[in-house]
Structures are given as C-alpha cells and as structure tokens.
Design a protein around this nucleic acid. Structure first.
Length: 509
DNA sequence: AAAAAAC
C-alpha cells in the first residue's frame, strides 16, 4: 500500500504530515503529488473533501525548500473563489509548513491592505488570493508576478460560475510562461476544458471517480410548509427542537436578506445561532466560522457561500430553509453533513411553489426523498419518537425571558447591519426608511458580530466575540485561528476520511 | 426566485 513516504515529499513535510496523524494518501494525493514534485502540470478533477488541498500544498512545500522569496516577488500563487476557501488553504500551509520558515500571504478582500502590503514587502513564498484583491494589488504596482514559479487554480468550475474567468486570464498573463500550473475543478464542462487546454502544458490528468453507491449516512426528508415566512420560521424552530441528537447544524437560505432575517428570528427565540453570508464584514465572517467550528455556536444560518468547499467537520444536521433553485446546490449543501461515515440528517422545507425544484432534486440524486408529515420527531434511526418535548408553535422551551413575537415589525426593520452597503444600495425594498438608530443599532450590532452564547445551556463553552475589539486588532483573530491545528475525532487514516456525502450519491454531476 | 468577488 502506498504511504506518504513513498511519494517523494521532503522530510520536513513528511514529519508535519505524520504529526497531523496521516499515513495513507487519498487517491488524488497519490496521483498528483509525484508528478507535481517533478514540476509537471496537473489537471485534477476532484470534489472538495477528497484531500485535494493537501495534494497541492504538500508538493509546493517541498518545492519551496529550495530558494528564497524576494520583496514584492511572490514565488507561488494560489487562486481561490471565496475568501473562506483562501483562508482555509492558508491554514493548511500553517499546518503542514510548521517545519518551514515560509512567508505565506493571504490576499483577500474585506480586510485592510496594510498588513497584506507588509507581507508582500517582506517577500512572500506563497500568495493565496481571491482574484479581485490580487488584481487590486497588481494595479497599485505593489506586486511583481514575474517570479511566480507555481500557479494553482482551484475550483475552476466555480470560478466560471462566479464570472471570474476573465480575471483569471488577466492574472495568468502576468505570470511567466515557464511556470508550473496546477489546475483543479470538480467538473469539466467544455468551457473549463478549453481553459485547461490554454493554461496547461502536457498535464498529468488525475480524476477521482465519484462512487456510484447511494449515501446511507445522510437521512433526507422533505417537510411540507406554508409559504409565509413566519410559518416557515415556526416550522423550522419546531423541526430543530425535535432533533434530540442535534449537535450542530447549518441552515441554508437562498437569499442574503433571508439569512439575516432568519438569524435574527432564531436569535430572538433564544437559539445559539450565528449567520454567514457574503455581505457581512470580513471580520464577522471569519469570527463566525471559527466559532461555529469550535462549537461556540450551534446553528449557522448561511447562504450558499457555505455550501461548498468549506471544511466544517462533523455537522450533524443540515436544514434547507429554502429549496435551492439549482439541484446541484442541494447536493453541495447536504454534503456538509454525514461526513467521515458519521450519520447526518438533512431536512428541506418545501412549499407548494417549490415542488418543481424538489422534483428536480429527486431526479438529480436519482432517489425519492421521503416526506416528513405530522410528527416532526419521528425520524427513524436518528431521533427516538418522543412526544414529550414536542413544542407548541411559537412558544418553545428556548423562549425564556425574551418572549417577543416573531412577526412584529422588529424583524422587518432590524436586518441592516450585517447586510452591508452594497446590498442596501441594491435593495428595492423599503428597509431603509425605517432605519432608525439607537436601539435598533444595538440589536443589529450584536448580530453582525455574530457570536451567540447559548443562553439556556450553561455547559456550553461560550465566549462571545463581540464588537468590543479595537478596529485595527484583526490580527489577533487570525493568529489564533492558525494556531488551531488539532483535528476532530480519532486519528484518521489518510485524508480520505473526509469524503462528503454527495460523493457517495448515485447520479450524474 | 440567488450567491459569490475589489475599492
């Protein structure tokens, strides 16, 4: 059997991999690492959760041991579609590069230029970027791309979806032709193939097959609901409370506004909840994700920014507050649970008008999803049937001291803060008119910083991260994130324990 | 019917 020590990685890298508890590489790692070390171009076709990130991080670390970075001339460049993914890759460099003295710079939007500039000035061995911020740095003339030896394009198909391809092409033009290019994509539609043909020279192609068996680890249910928002919120609360084995959950909404509204509603009802969407300020996003990973908050209301790629291990439940419009998004969302062979549950609220989307989902996953009717606690194998805790609508055990109607106008007018300026500018809704300050600002403030202690469960470790930090102190947050290099659960064998459920589902991409 | 990303 192949182990990491057979792949040609350096001693420093091997010892960090061993320390992290890994011995057996996943297929993508086994396939990509040796040719990458020989400076071949790579075309990797793999979903997130297959160990893809380590398949480029580990060989890059080995290659970077020769040579040094010069000021403003990064040696390698990694492009990621979202800020969170970029930060996650940076964490991987910290983890596996702990025996190296490499300068890793994370260039993402939403945070100040100053610190990023200082890192570039010192000379970056590794640059991890979202496209917009990288181009911004380039246009300021702060960055010379002529020294880049390795270019990584990650999640290429998602970059395409997000309209990043022109940016990617502009960036690639700045980088010498002699570079090594590592190109990853979950799928290979014709546009991506064309792009790969242009960017890669005689690449080694590694494709990780999607097993054709049905995922049995995720129990899926549709839940019929009325279309009114307050009915859906009430149904969701009942559903959440009925899950006796709910450890933590992501609740997906289709729109950012609904993320903000639902977050506020759940918060008012006393749940331990946070929110994550793309218009929140970056510090809140980072703090939120870290706190959710650390278990400081139990529920995360999120847009599809959290559907793919993010490495949040061991989510017990996924709730779709809205049926995703594109069936593939459903597969990505429920792929957040049932990982590593653990059992998980995925509930989707479906209104009458949603049925065409739920039909499309069943078609895609090639499987009928059972409807959960009546007793919300009657889930086989997940929840013992138990009527005791069945809450009456609109008044649960979490209500506690803050007993306020969910339908009140407060819910409509207090969502501003964590939505951000752009959304406000784009909104045709009438929110702004009622945007008074004072009390509302305080409510919104707590929300934007995102950490909610569980008010009725004192055993939960809850150290709320609130808005009290001085404005220029965001480094502390990041450093503490990077120090967390421990793994969850028992020592895994290889990276492949992390196969998301969607990979096990039969059906086409 | 959306979201993601630069200022």
């Amino acid at each position: 059997m192949t182990t990491f020590s057979d792949l040609g990685l350096s001693q420093k890298v091997l010892s960090a991999v061993t320390d992290a508890g890994y011995t057996i590489p996943t297929p993508i790692q086994e396939g990509a690492i040796p040719p990458a070390l020989q400076r071949r171009d790579i075309l990797g076709i793999a979903q997130t959760g297959t160990g893809k990130t380590a398949s480029f991080v580990l060989p890059m670390l080995t290659l970077l041991e020769k040579g040094r970075a010069r000021a403003r001339m990064p040696r390698t460049l990694i492009l990621e579609p979202t800020r969170e993914l970029a930060a996650q890759v940076a964490e991987n460099f910290e983890k596996y590069g702990k025996n190296h003295k490499l300068n890793v710079a994370l260039l993402i939007g939403g945070v100040s230029f100053d610190e990023q500039d200082r890192k570039l000035e010192r000379g970056a061995d590794v640059l991890i970027c979202t496209p917009g911020r990288l181009l911004d740095h380039c246009e300021r003339g702060k960055l010379l791309m002529t020294g880049v030896e390795v270019l990584v394009i990650d999640e290429a198909d998602r970059m395409l979806d997000m309209g990043f391809i022109p940016d990617i092409e502009r960036i690639a033009k700045l980088i010498p032709f002699t570079r090594q290019t590592l190109f990853f994509s979950a799928t290979m539609p014709p546009e991506i193939q064309k792009l790969a043909d242009r960017f890669l020279q005689n690449p080694e192609r590694i494709e990780v097959a999607r097993p054709a068996s049905t995922a049995i680890t995720v129990t899926q249910r549709f839940v019929a609901t009325h279309a009114k928002d307050y009915e859906k919120r009430s149904k969701l609360r009942d559903l959440v409370r009925a899950q006796e084995d709910l450890k933590n959950a992501i609740i997906f909404c289709n729109r950012k506004k609904d993320v903000a509204d639902l977050f506020r509603s759940l918060d008012r009802h006393g749940f331990s909840v946070g929110a994550l969407h793309g218009d929140m300020d970056q510090r809140s996003r980072m703090a939120m994700l870290a706190n959710f990973k650390d278990g400081n908050i139990q529920l995360l209301v999120a847009s599809d920014v959290a559907a793919r790629g993010l490495d949040i291990p061991d989510v017990s439940h996924v709730f779709n507050f809205d049926v995703p419009i594109h069936a593939e998004d459903y597969v990505h969302r429920i792929g957040r649970t049932g990982r590593a062979g653990r059992s998980g549950a995925a509930f989707t609220l479906v209104t009458k008008r949603d049925t065409k989307f739920s039909d499309a989902i069943e078609k895609l996953i090639d499987k009928k999803v059972e409807w959960l009717d009546g007793d919300l606690a009657s889930l086989p194998a997940l929840v013992e049937s138990d009527e005791r805790e069945k809450p009456r609508r609109g008044r649960g055990r979490e209500r506690g001291e803050r007993d306020r109607s969910d339908r009140g106008e407060r819910s409509e007018r207090s969502a501003e803060r964590d939505r951000g300026d752009r959304d406000r500018a784009n909104s045709h809704k009438s929110d702004n008119r009622r945007d008074d300050n004072g009390k509302e600002a305080i409510v919104a403030d707590r929300g934007s910083d995102a950490v909610k202690a569980d008010r009725h469960n004192d055993t939960r470790p809850s150290q709320p991260v609130r808005n009290q930090r001085p404005a220029n102190d965001d480094n502390r947050d990041r450093r503490s994130r990077y120090r967390r290099d421990e793994d969850d659960g028992p020592t895994p064998v290889g990276f492949g324990d992390d196969i998301p459920a969607f990979m096990l589902i039969a059906g086409k991409a």
